[in-house]
Design a protein around this nucleic acid. Structure first.
Lengths: 341, 341
DNA sequence: TTGTACGCGTTATCAC
DNA sequence: GTGATAACGCGTACAA
């Protein structure tokens, strides 16, 4: 237990080889004879050698660490993305140091400097707290996901296309008036595409529409209360129309659905609803909710590819930094369920 | 960019002090005069020094890393626990290397050896794949959460008490027959307490009851189909009774609720439902579901305390290992909502 | 209060 | 194919 760890030195003494040869057994085994490989393999087993990657990092600088900052894991979107990111370990071998950001710039800066102190090779940022300009200044490979990304590489869902798909589905399901409920999203955030796409397609097709941008609140109860109000307003305003409502996400779509179900016992025929994200709640709702599904696995994989590319470039003797950040776009998939019949 | 990092050596040369003094500035600043502290502080700023914790680890052995293995992040319970664990960074300063286990022993063993190679100081295990006996054999501080834990320290919810609370609530809400639906859980897993507690309290109070242990399937659709069958069977068997159903978790409770709502337009008066976990779905369901809430923040904190204790013991010159693993129990909190009125 | 010298465990360089 | 030696950057006796 308190016996010191077995090192290359011990293996070297035990076998009569040098440390160098032992090292080569791991990093370039072909340079040893098969026989000698076996001798070392036996010694490693006999002495129960355990590798020490910390020492290797110090010697060659490759930590195989990637830092991740997520805003929270309450929202299914983030836990799902983290899940997919962590699962890329099988393919890429990078280990992840994960922090949960809490909307405070200085604390997040502290996370980043902690990450840098551990010589991470790159970062994946999902939190919105720190500007891409500042992120870029850290001068380390970075990929952001679904956030402001002017100065850094990023992977985003094609929110604009998602909104177009959602609106089209609502039109197809026979709605007279299309409504989009969202919070006021800054234009430089990818999710703004949901608003823009909705407005553009409705205008283009001459569909009567209404974009309601309002803060729904931070808790489930606040959301519910605010949406209950909105339903009343909408029913006042469009009493005899078939209403197609595109919600900014599935959680809100579900709250809306539940409000209607408790009011009418079911989803009335003159309502259609589409959510966004394809969170579990969308399929687990009383009436499964149609939604714009984000391809989280693909997004995570693209993010890793983009990051690995940058990290590999850095390891070259003559690294050529990207002139322009690369922004990848992943198309969402429309999922038709029972709320758009 | 490709200029080498600034080290203590550079600071030493710049200030005229030795590396040792610079090191002390960080680890024992009081041993320097205020004036010299300032000189070094200025030099650090002037040269833009960035600390290198990898080197520190190699020198003193303290990585401040904790390895975490979660089975998945699809289930809200796990993402919530991970969230709470990661959030303890503010209090304890430990960094987390996170792996998602996928039910494969060898892959998880590989995760563990990877973690050990990075000289983590301890592990928090939520996955069920590897036995506590094997975990204990790694001879490193470990805490498990809500899983088989015979040979290692653990923090678990008081599942037995949770079931007792749930059953009592169902009795209080006037049910004639109490039903518990769960999968066949091994007796050495904490969640078995839900079955045992339910049976014990029902027997003790002479309440008519029925424990249905059956595999509900792995997907939402399978769950739904199986539960639809079960509802039919239950209604056949207990047609004129008020049924109190204690589900093994909120996801299943919600599916049951939705089946009933789609069948009757609302939750019939002769049904009461209680779930387990207090996942978001329980409050976001059409009819908010009563549930046994796990105190995730408290659980995470107890786990860290237990782990930190073991890790600190290890750093003493004469560590005294625990004779017996410590098992902490956290009481769940019954949350009454509208499904038990 | 400050400095010297060495150790931590591996990899890289250059010989042979 | 193999080995000696010097990094890598920091911590820590021990000395002064």
């Amino acid at each position: 237990m308190n016996k010191k760890n077995v090192t290359f030195d011990d293996i070297a003494k035990y076998t009569g080889f040098s440390k160098t040869t032992v090292s080569r057994y791991f990093n370039n085994p072909d340079s040893l004879t098969l026989k000698n490989q076996q001798i070392i393999a036996d010694a490693l087993a006999a002495l129960d050698y355990k590798e020490n990657k910390v020492a290797r990092i110090l010697a060659n600088g490759n930590t195989e660490f990637i830092g991740v900052i997520v805003p929270n894991l309450y929202l299914h979107y983030y836990s799902e993305m983290l899940n997919r990111i962590l699962s890329t370990y099988e393919e890429y071998g990078y280990k992840f140091l994960v922090f949960v950001g809490d909307e405070n710039k200085n604390i997040e800066r502290q996370y980043i400097s902690e990450l840098l102190a551990y010589k991470i090779e790159g970062m994946i940022i999902l939190s919105h707290t720190i500007s891409s300009k500042e992120l870029a200044s850290y001068n380390i490979p970075i990929v952001t996901i679904e956030r402001e990304d002017e100065y850094v590489c990023s992977v985003n869902t094609d929110n604009y296309m998602g909104a177009v798909q959602a609106a089209s589905l609502l039109v197809k399901s026979g709605c007279d008036i299309l409504i989009h409920i969202n919070s006021p999203v800054p234009e430089n955030v990818p999710a703004y595409g949901r608003i823009k796409g909705f407005e553009d397609i409705c205008s283009e097709r001459n569909v009567v529409h209404n974009v309601i941008l309002t803060q729904l609140g931070n808790t489930f109860e606040e959301n519910k209360e605010k949406l209950t109000q909105l339903v009343d307003e909408i029913e006042d305003k469009y009493p005899n129309k078939k209403k197609g409502i595109f919600m900014s996400n599935d959680t809100h779509a579900n709250i809306l659905l539940n409000i209607l179900i408790r009011k009418y016992g079911t989803l009335p025929d003159n309502y259609s609803i589409v959510g966004f994200d394809n969170s579990p709640i969308s399929s687990e709702a009383v009436i499964p909710i149609s939604t714009v599904g984000q391809q989280s696995e693909l997004i995570a994989d693209e993010a890793m590819k983009l990051l690995v590319m940058q990290m590999n470039e850095r390891k070259k003797r003559k690294p050529v930094p990207l002139k322009e950040p690369i922004h990848k776009i992943v198309t969402p998939i429309l999922i038709r369920r029972e709320t758009t019949m």
